[in-house]
Simulated assay, not measured.
Amino acid sequence: MIDSLNGEVLSVGLDHAVIECAGVGYRFLAGPPTLARLTRGDTTRVLTSMVAKDDGVTLYGFVDDVARTMFHKLQTVSGLGPKLALACLSVFEPAELAGLITAGDAAAIKRIQTIPGVGKKMAERMALELKDKIDGLYEPLEGKAPVAEAAPAGASLASEQVVEALVGLGFAEKTARPVVDVLVEENPSETSSALLRAALTQLGSK
């Protein structure tokens, strides 16, 4: 099992990155909170979770053990797989999601439903099956590492990349595009990763 990767960052995409370790490039899927802290050419350590299925083996990357632990706990919920678990952590920080799950009230359930792919039944199932597993486990995260800066993409290209990433996460294009267009107009020099994170925050609060 591959527990972590430590090496040079070869590339960073909107939903994945590649790190070279001992001459081998390892591609892993990750959410905006992890990808935003990676910079091409830097030597970085990323924690990983390896998921093996009939169609192959996939690595998922995380910037810290809190996020990886939540990723594993989310998958203990009936019908909640790794891709949906990653979507959960793309919309909410682990501590924030844990708070919603432990609250388990109508307002919290409604907020959990903003995660693409999570309907009312899944949100209720998450609250029911995880409440006792994560109650009091996470504290609010402090002193977050600054978002790594990258060369700004062109506004049009950045917009299309972010919309494509959001659609891949399960948002409807007609819902995602207006949010992205406004963000790009207000922050024309912002990186694609930062725009994706901002879009997820806005879409998750609706």
Rank of each mutant, 00 (worst) to 15 (best):
G31R: 01
E93I: 11
G170M: 02
R37P: 05
S78G: 12
Q113L: 04
A145W: 03
V182H: 05
A106H: 07
K206W: 14
L137V: 14
I134G: 02
T43I: 03
G81M: 07
K121S: 07
A150D: 13
T58D: 10
V51A: 03
A52E: 10
L100V: 06
E186P: 08
I112L: 00
I134K: 01
A199W: 11
Y26K: 05
M122W: 11
I112A: 03
K131G: 00
I19M: 00
D181W: 02
L89Q: 07
G79W: 06
H16P: 09
K133I: 05
A153P: 08
P94H: 12
A52N: 12
D105V: 05
M122L: 10
G117V: 00
A153C: 08
P82L: 06
G25W: 08
L128T: 11
A17R: 03
A176Q: 04
E142L: 15
R27A: 12
L38R: 05
P152I: 15
N6F: 01
R45T: 01
L130P: 00
D15M: 07
A153M: 09
F71W: 13
S49L: 10
E173T: 04
R27L: 13
I134E: 04
L86C: 03
S49K: 08
Q113V: 00
F171I: 01
T191E: 12
V66C: 14
L130S: 03
L74F: 05
L137M: 13
M126T: 00
K110R: 12
F71E: 12
L169H: 06
D181V: 03
V12W: 05
T191N: 14
L89M: 10
N187A: 13
F171N: 06
G204E: 04
T69F: 08
V118C: 04
R68Q: 14
E185L: 09
V12K: 01
G168P: 02
V18D: 08
F71H: 11
G104Q: 04
A22W: 07
S193E: 12
D3Y: 10
M50E: 09
N187M: 15
